[in-house]
């Protein structure tokens, strides 16, 4: 149901606001926010350098198009594959936790940037220039399909044994391991799934932009936006990151085209206020799953010690 709604909203996008570059970028950010959701929402690891996977997907697909002349769909697959390989190489980082993990992924993404920017076979200095493989309309349609498939995957993950293991690990890795969950493998799978999402997003972005320099794909603000969008909507839900992206990125575009003088200031303050006053995201306001609103937690704590054992509901 929510899936159909999201697809319906995205499909009707061009009728409301016919800027396909904006709508495709919106779909790309939904994929990225869901990727953050998988790795942060379900495992508690904050991938601050998530943009590294996005960049890997961009360069994997672009180089395949340039050197092997592959078609658009193959490029998407190869973009995802490149990001998964990058994820495998970086999987030792999962040994770290908290800020160490966040900063290590950031370092990894920037190291990747310097490799790409330095090498001539990646067109690091001269810039990438791709042929047009899809019309803007076709590319947007593909992006909407990618979002739909992603949501199905996330739903399946959430409700599967795999999702249950992820949640168990998130709340307490030690007990999860004792209960027979393979902690390392489960975490790594979630990590690779989120890498693949960024890879697909990257391939779509590469085909949309087609001419770009290395600093754009590896720009850290892309990570930050994906994280902020996911958190604003509410992680550990399926709809949260979608909602967060649609609301905040539309707002971003709106502020952008209404041309205020203090754009950066407004956006910075918004982030600060968001962290301080809406840590559970939008879905927590509506009484969503996962993080309950702070006041409700307080009520629960007051009423009984069993408050936290309320069974998790479905939908959203």
């Amino acid at each position: 149901m929510p899936l159909a709604l999201v697809v319906a909203v995205l499909a009707s996008g061009p009728a409301l606001y016919n800027n396909l570059a904006f709508l495709t970028t919106l779909a790309i950010y939904i994929l990225l926010a869901q990727g953050v959701n998988v790795v942060y929402g379900f495992t508690g690891y904050l991938p601050f350098g998530y943009v590294g996977f996005f960049g890997a997907g961009i360069y994997g697909s672009s180089l395949a198009i340039t050197y092997w002349h592959v078609g658009g769909y193959a490029a998407i697959g190869l973009g995802a594959a490149t990001s998964i390989i990058a994820g495998l190489i970086l999987s030792p980082l999962l040994r770290l936790s908290g800020a160490y993990f966040a900063l290590a992924t950031l370092a990894a993404s920037q190291a990747l940037y310097f490799i790409v920017a330095n090498e001539s076979w990646t067109f690091g200095e001269s810039g990438m220039s791709l042929p047009l493989l899809f019309s803007p309309t076709a590319l947007y349609a593909i992006s909407v399909v990618a979002v739909a498939l992603t949501l199905i995957v996330i739903l399946l993950v959430r409700d599967s044994h795999f999702g249950l293991s992820l949640r168990a690990i998130r709340s307490d890795p030690v007990s999860a391991a004792m209960a027979g969950v393979n902690v390392v493998r489960t975490r790594t799978l979630a990590w690779l799934l989120s890498a693949a999402l960024a890879g697909v997003a990257g391939a779509l972005w590469a085909m949309m932009t087609s001419a770009f320099y290395a600093e754009t794909p590896f720009d850290l603000t892309i990570s930050v936006y994906a994280i902020v969008f996911a958190l604003f909507g509410g992680v550990r839900t399926v709809i949260g990151p979608v909602l967060g992206t649609i609301v905040l990125y539309s707002l971003y575009q709106y502020i952008g085209i209404s041309n205020p003088q203090y754009f950066e200031l407004i956006y910075g303050l918004l982030i600060v206020l968001l962290v301080l006053f809406l840590p559970g995201g939008l879905t927590s306001l509506v009484g969503g799953r996962g993080d309950r609103p702070a006041w409700w937690n307080w009520v629960l704590r007051r009423r009984s010690a069993h408050g936290d054992l309320t069974p998790e509901g479905r939908s959203s």
Binding site: M1, P2, V9, L16, Y17, I239, L243, S250, I257, L282
Partner: peptide, 20 residues
């Protein structure tokens, strides 16, 4: 919840479309 989401999305897009 979906109704609310829909309303938010619609208003977001409407707002974004305005200056255009």
């Amino acid at each position: 919840r979906l109704a609310l989401v829909g309303a938010l999305v619609a208003s977001g897009l409407a707002v974004a479309a305005l200056p255009g």
